[in-house]
């Protein structure tokens, strides 16, 4: 298997608090990789450091053999990593279609001059972008809502739209932060099918999730974080048997 993304001894501190300590993971091309752990274990922090939302305090991320730029989210996207947010962050005044088209920003190139003069290249690019966006909306299953303003979409559809927008950046790695949070059972099943389709189309998926059932059913491999440290990594079955993991989840050293 080919390695897509590697985190090497990644550290992150907030003041005196060590949010991540020497976290090293290897994500292989084409797999669904789960990141689990109790609340406050550092999963979302890991996402934020990976995608450049936070500065890194030590270690590095290597994507396709090249080190990722630190603390510059828009450059990380160019390296092929796209993310969604735990608390959905859509462009609320834009339609679903426009949201996805915005996601295509870095894969398009029309400049001010081309746009102002409506050059042939700019018009063609705009047309293609729209076509592609409609395809992606159909792909995630909300094509019929293309012209609905994002804030008027149902919760489940907003989640799907966020995934569609991330896909529009043409990522190699799609990082989903608790995509099933707040979803009902039917919606979760739909989400699972969608993630499987995405994986089937060759996009690697990094998944933070609380829903253990979903993780176990969906992921090829899983890493467990606890107090900012990786305590286990392996197939879901292996991880489930790991005594450290059981202790972390059953609260052996936790007050609650």
């Amino acid at each position: 298997m080919i390695t897509l993304l590697e985190s090497r001894a990644v550290n992150k501190r907030f003041g005196g608090l060590k949010a991540l300590t020497d976290v090293s993971l290897t994500i292989r091309k084409g797999e669904v990789y789960g990141l689990i752990g109790p609340n406050g274990a550092g999963k979302t922090t890991f996402f934020n450091v990976l995608t450049g939302a936070y500065a890194i305090d030590g270690g590095e991320f290597v994507m396709n053999g090249a080190e990722l730029p630190a603390a510059t989210p828009h450059l990380v996207v160019q390296h092929g990593i796209a993310r969604t947010f735990q608390n959905i962050r859509l462009f609320r005044e834009l339609t679903a279609l426009e949201n996805v088209m915005a996601g295509h920003h870095i894969r398009s190139s029309a400049g001010v001059w081309g746009i102002l003069t409506q050059s042939r290249a700019a018009r063609e690019e705009e047309r293609l972008m729209q076509e592609r966006a409609l395809e992606i909306l159909d792909y995630v299953g909300i094509g019929r809502h293309a012209d609905t303003v994002a804030r008027n979409l149902s919760y489940g559809d907003q989640r799907r739209l966020e995934i569609a927008r991330a896909l529009a950046t043409e990522p190699q790695l799609l990082a989903l932060d608790e995509p099933a949070a707040g979803m009902n059972a039917t919606e979760t099943v739909g989400l699972r099918t969608l993630v499987e389709t995405i994986r089937g189309d060759g996009i690697t998926v990094l998944l933070i999730e609380h829903d253990v059932k979903l993780i176990m059913g969906l992921c090829d491999r899983v890493a467990v974080l606890d107090f900012g440290k990786k305590i286990a990594e392996g197939t879901p079955a292996e991880v489930q048997r790991d005594p450290d993991v059981i202790r972390a989840y059953l609260g052996g050293h936790r007050a609650h």
Partner: peptide, 9 residues
């Protein structure tokens, strides 16, 4: 933040 996350400078 979301704009940055989709690669907009």
């Amino acid at each position: 933040l979301a704009a940055k996350a989709i690669g907009i400078d």
